[in-house]
Simulated assay, not measured.
Amino acid sequence: MIVLPWLGQNIMTDIKLSGRRHDLDALRVLCFGTLIIYHTSLAYGTRTWLLNASDGSRLIDLIAAGSHPWRMSLLFFISGLVTQSLLRNRSISEVRTARTRQLLLPFVLGVLLIVPPQFYLSQHNPFPGLSYWEFWKAYIVSGLRFEHLWFLAYLWIYMFLWSLLWPCIQRLCPNLPSAFANQLRGAKLLLIPIIFLSVLRVWLYPIFGETLVISTDVYAHLVYFPMFLAGSLLMNEPSFWREVDRQRWVSGGLAILSFLIIATVVLAVPQDYRPDSLVIPMRIVRSIFQWCAILALLGFAARIANRPNPVIAFLNRSMMTYYVVHQTIIIIVAYYIAKLGMLNISSFIPVMLITAIGCGVIGEAQKLAMRYLPVVISRLVALVRVPTKLSPPGAALD
């Protein structure tokens, strides 16, 4: 009889804490992949976005409701895990330097070059009627906007803070990671994070909201920075990963149940007509869905995606490029489809597929440029550096 280990309730995974974590690679690809679907859905849902289809659908809103609560939190958690894992072969200063180079360069270039076309083509263009060059200059002077690239800025800040905190933790509280993992056992693995997220969502979200502006985004920082820290603390704690594996079915079941509740409310009651008595219960249900989905994905990924996969490896190498360019591709494609009068629900899948293909093409072009551009530049430099031969003294002139 063939047994699928990820289906077996009594089969424990071999918790692998050294070497490459292929499950984290798979989850990273999943998160960024759903980000393309999520941002495409914003053009076809009922929420006002940069561009909106003529027939926004609450059914499409389910994509955001089913992915947004957990996706960014999981990305920050994975980022904490990966950042901590880099310490196996590097010092803190080396990790900080490497992550700064990986995050800040695409962030700066993205904010200056990739984000502006989104506003130029959007229905909220602050400078209509200008040529793109004139728009770009006015846009830069009036104040830069991060749009989807806020994640890179936040992640760099959290990484920098971690690089300052981690030496202090090692010196003053070396047992903190294991003590933290010991607290997340049994029902507490579910209850402690759900209560924490519910408190933030019920009491702080109404006050601060999510601004995606670094200096004012209090609520988001209190959600995402602890997620990053939790990942860094739990990376090397086998007891945590065993507990996640043991409770994967419970967390998966709760995630499905809570999402069904959210989906029912989204489809049955429009946002503007929801009674006040429903607001707090829905925020708690959303917190349950957020954490249980993260746990379930971590648990099942460790079972299913624990071996090298060529497709995941291929995609993982270009994820940063896909992330930086995908929203601009969505806006450009949606804009020209709208010009044809075809920006309706029937164009949702084509826009999503064209975006994915465009990301792939740009990602491969970048790889080729990184591989061959230094060679081309070095050869051009060699051509212009023609050595000058000095004539010997007394040589006759032609």
Rank of each mutant, 00 (worst) to 15 (best):
T216R: 10
N316A: 03
L191I: 06
F77E: 10
H221P: 11
R385C: 08
I262Y: 04
L144K: 03
M370N: 11
T40R: 10
W166G: 11
L383H: 14
G360E: 13
V95N: 04
H68V: 14
P69C: 03
Y224K: 00
S85I: 06
P117E: 09
L191A: 09
V3F: 09
S239M: 13
L81K: 08
L191R: 02
R145H: 05
H148D: 05
P270Q: 05
S41D: 02
L390R: 04
R47M: 15
H326S: 01
E364L: 10
P177S: 15
L295H: 07
R379E: 13
W249G: 03
A369R: 05
S391M: 10
G66T: 01
P226R: 03
I332D: 09
A396E: 13
M370C: 14
W136R: 00
Q123K: 01
P106E: 02
M227K: 00
V265G: 06
L164C: 11
M370L: 15
A181F: 13
I194T: 13
P393S: 15
L278M: 05
C31L: 03
I63N: 10
Y120I: 14
P374E: 00
Y219M: 07
R96H: 01
G394Y: 07
P167F: 12
V95L: 10
P117M: 11
A53S: 12
R58N: 07
I36P: 14
A356V: 13
G209Q: 13
A179Q: 11
F146H: 08
L343Q: 07
L24R: 02
R379M: 13
W203G: 09
G8W: 06
P281C: 14
G341L: 01
G231R: 06
R385A: 12
M352G: 08
Q84R: 15
A98M: 11
I288L: 03
A302V: 14
L340I: 01
A230E: 01
S178A: 11
Q247G: 00
S277W: 07
A268W: 08
E134G: 06
G341W: 02
V384R: 06
A313R: 00
L86E: 11
L75T: 06
Q123E: 08
I345N: 10
